[in-house]
Design a protein around this nucleic acid. Structure first.
Lengths: 210, 210, 210, 210
DNA sequence: GATGAATGAGATTTCATTCAT
DNA sequence: TATGAATGAAATCTCATTCAT
């Protein structure tokens, strides 16, 4: 007659807390998020949050750490070897484009963390200094393009990454003010392909041999 | 020996409050900002903030309104008529580039407002629906470039604006996480000209006739 | 081109303040009433309220004093001499019935003053100990009825007054809770004559010779 | 030597808060009551009031709800079946008479709630629309009296209830202004039986067959 | 007489965190 | 492990009143 004993699976409880906390922090920001609210949205009690994570800040850091692991693996699906460099670049940009569109919580958490001047990322041994593996893939592509004579020799991979990120982050992160002022929803599905192609064009223009 | 009587100049008092509030909101976010802290940084009392602005939210909206008026006038200095379209586009992009670099508080406020899903902008009769006049200047430039045969005919001014904003906003707004992860400070003065030129190239590539 | 100089008529200004203050106090109670709100509802400023009345409490007392003067004169219209006692009693009850129905603000002020245990009435030299002149009229009627053999000899005028007041005050003062619980609006115009007659019957039954 | 641990008995803590809050609200009115004062009168802290009741208004509603439950049960003790209708009516009126005399806080809360136009009662799912069970008892008595030929056939139970309430509420609620103006304390013990009988007479005169 | 700005004291409410069991 | 009760510190906001002109 007892309720299903969820309490006996610590990993599950931890993951549940992280799910709810991610939603709450992404929704309200670090300061605006409420520990009470996180507890209220779960079957676990507030005391458990402190048991598993210590305090609000450590919980937030754990949320950040898990959120960042998601994007680190997106480039795995890219078969760099069998694509010509131009297609590879376009597909790589598309991966970030797709990811940011479908993970607004991640993009919001990054914005929030920047408001806090990356104070928590810096405090996390997991995140601090963990360069995005995307750069390796990108570097490989750029080298192959240069060898093929289609890309410039002096392209900085991090600049390419920056252009892709700026476009994709802005489209999601600044969606609301952009829409409020210009009455255009950058996430309108009808504009999706237009923006996706536009990003590819921009990046290719940047890396192209002159 | 009396303290300078700032009290009897309401416009000055109001402006002082806005200055301090802008710094506080940009620094801590809407929720993290403290009315107490704003009052403590001035010679005016906390009570005056409520006297002039009603409550925290209206003060924040007033801060947003004033911050947005700053950027709306930056394009005025651009002498569109006497520039050839290519130079004009490059200079226009440079204006936003310079503005966002020198107004990190504005960029932070925009990020903060997006975290709140533009709830306050929407509530402001001043800001809501007030399209950036930059678009008019941009439209003029694009038309002249098209007439001169150097720009494509189907360029959307808002897309151009988006590319410029995305680049300039990202450089300032995401500076901290970018630096924490990739160890590159996008606001490093030594990189300034490189980024400024890179932006111009990107925008011109986007609008160029093929 | 100057605005009409209302300021130069102190009596008028005083009366205006009292009008607005009466509405505010009757609406929100003594504690709930806001000096700011009273000032906001007038063209006069808040400072004038203090100039004319000293403070919130004295303003409230002035409101009470003026409100009580209204009911003191309602019995004047009653031609006791030419009415037979039974008609006179019924008409007297009707006067209070009509007055309280048409002066809900007065009835509310009395309720409010009772919540404060008549502390302000006691403090007012005008109101304290100023017995309602209605009692004189009432006493005359009762005497004439007794002499005519239609009323009991031992009727206490104050008891009659109490019965009339209880009925008329309750109908107005307790209208809202009565309606909330029993779904009957005691001030429904369709019930007016029923209640008016009922009151007359009650009072006459009380004074009638057995 | 430790203070008695009242803390770990939530029901007791809740009830204690309600006791003190009832006294405070009845004493000062809704607006005049101070949450600080309620806390100061107990061993519990102010914070607990919010923990248990959410905010001042909900606490006030809880006070109202409990106060109203008291009067709803007073008619239970009336043995309608074994009383003749005339005695039953007189006893029923006496129950309200006694209750209101001995529960001035309840009567004051009702006055206060009427000043607020029953806004909180309406908001309470418990109180809104919960007709007083007294009406059932009253209806039964009236029917038996009618069948016995001693009461009129067209008596409205709610009118009878209104007469009883008006008299009993007025005696307690308007005690202070009545005494201030007419120098008669309606709650003077020496007048008690006089008023009690007077009420019975009034009600019986109203329901009596003609 | 009249005005808008200013103010101190105090009101309600919030929130991360810990205690006792 | 788990839980509901408890809490101190601090947050936002209010209000009658007075000052300087």
């Amino acid at each position: 007659m007892a309720a299903p004993d969820r309490g006996r699976d610590p990993d599950r409880t931890r993951a549940d807390i992280l799910d709810v906390a991610t939603a709450e922090f992404a929704d309200k920001g670090y300061t605006g998020a409420r520990v009470d609210e996180i507890a209220a949205r779960m079957s676990t009690t507030k005391r458990m949050i402190y048991y598993y994570f210590g305090n609000k800040e450590q919980l937030y850091i754990a949320v950040l750490e898990r959120a960042y692991t998601g994007i680190r693996t997106i480039e795995q699906g890219l078969d760099v070897e069998h694509l010509d460099p131009v297609d590879a670049i376009r597909q790589l940009a598309g991966l970030t484009f797709d990811h940011h569109e479908s993970h607004p919580d991640f993009v919001r958490l990054v914005s929030i963390e920047n408001i806090h001047r990356a104070a928590h990322i810096t405090r996390s041994s997991v995140l601090s200094g963990l360069a995005d593996p995307a750069l390796d893939v990108l570097t490989t592509i750029l080298e192959r393009g240069r060898d093929a004579g289609v890309f410039r020799a002096d392209v900085d991979p991090l600049d390419v990454h920056m252009v892709i990120s700026a476009f994709c982050v802005f489209r999601t992160a600044n969606r609301h003010t952009f829409n409020a002022i210009f009455k255009r929803d950058m996430l309108d599905p009808g504009l999706r392909e237009h923006y996706r192609e536009m990003l590819g064009d921009l990046v290719l223009a940047h890396v192209a041999a002159r």
